[in-house]
Amino acid sequence: MAEPNVVLVYDKQCPACDNYCRWVRLRDAVGPLQLVDAREDTEILSEITARGWDIDQGMVLKVGEQLYYGADAIHALALMGSRSGLFNRLNYWMFRSPRMASVLYPVLRALRNLLLKALRKSKINNLGKADNERF
Rank of each mutant, 00 (worst) to 15 (best):
M1F: 00
A2R: 14
V7W: 05
V7C: 03
Y10D: 06
D11S: 06
A16Y: 12
C17Y: 05
D18G: 02
N19M: 12
C21H: 13
C21E: 03
V24A: 03
L26N: 06
V30P: 01
P32L: 11
L33T: 10
L33Y: 02
Q34W: 01
V36I: 14
V36W: 07
D37A: 10
D37S: 02
D37F: 03
A38L: 05
R39E: 05
E40F: 08
D41Y: 03
T42V: 05
E43D: 15
I44G: 05
S46M: 06
S46K: 12
E47Q: 15
R51F: 01
W53L: 06
W53D: 02
D54Y: 10
I55F: 10
Q57K: 12
Q57H: 09
Q57F: 00
G58K: 05
V60I: 14
V60F: 09
V63T: 12
G64D: 08
E65H: 14
E65S: 14
Q66V: 15
Y69N: 05
Y69S: 02
G70H: 04
A71E: 09
A71R: 06
D72K: 14
A73N: 03
A73R: 02
H75E: 08
A76H: 10
L77R: 00
A78N: 10
M80P: 01
S82V: 11
S82I: 11
R83P: 01
S84Q: 14
L86F: 12
R89N: 03
L90A: 15
F95Q: 01
R96T: 10
R96W: 12
R96C: 11
R99C: 07
V103F: 13
L111V: 15
L111N: 00
R112I: 13
N113K: 15
L116N: 09
K117F: 13
A118S: 07
A118V: 11
R120V: 04
K121W: 06
L127C: 03
K129N: 02
A130L: 06
A130K: 07
N132L: 13
N132K: 12
F135N: 04
